[in-house]
């Protein structure tokens, strides 16, 4: 059993990747930029012993699309690496080669938030139905279903026989 990580240790190790702040009990968040994300994740895996990706969460905060990569390891501390992408052109290089389970999370985020992960082996629809309209991302804050538009499923036929 390894002791939980301390704020000082995490700050010291992650110097140069962004700000480190505590985010709840036994949780630390490192905010970084999209271009340093990959290096930060590799650094976290190598230097902080984070061998498990818990999940990738995406949040739309109306200014940017945030991505949170949550890691943990033997030390049981959750390290979150957060980054923000512009809402107009959210593109990020895929991490599915580095983090195998991220492949599915990226497909899900692509469906719901419209973030394109370049280099992803099969960025097809995962959770949304295949006849869901393109370029509509339901979990974005400004999304509203357009009246009269088909969002998939069987078409109701109301005309009398």
């Amino acid at each position: 059993m390894i002791d939980p990580l301390t704020l000082n240790f995490v700050t010291e190790t992650m110097k140069g990747f962004g700000t480190v702040e505590p985010a709840g009990k036994n949780r630390f968040r490192i905010t970084t930029t999209p271009d340093r994300l990959r290096d930060a994740i590799m650094h976290v895996q190598a230097m902080l012993g984070c061998d498990r990706l818990i999940t990738v969460s995406a949040v739309d905060n109306s200014r940017t699309l945030e991505l949170h990569y949550h890691f943990t390891g033997q030390h049981r501390t959750v390290i979150t690496i957060a980054t923000g992408l512009s809402r107009d052109k959210p593109v990020l290089a895929t991490l599915s080669d580095l983090l195998l389970p991220a492949g599915l999370y990226e497909r899900q985020i692509h469906d719901l938030f419209g973030i394109s992960f370049t280099g992803h082996p099969s960025l097809k629809k995962l959770v949304l139905n295949e006849d869901f309209p393109e370029n509509e991302y339901p979990l974005r804050k400004d999304w509203k279903p357009a009246p009269g538009r088909s969002y998939g499923g069987t078409k109701e036929r109301r005309e009398p026989l």
Partner: peptide
């Protein structure tokens, strides 16, 4: 793999 058969939009 495809899970899209029944997404309910709970989030």
């Amino acid at each position: 793999l495809d899970l899209s058969y029944n997404h309910r939009g709970i989030e």
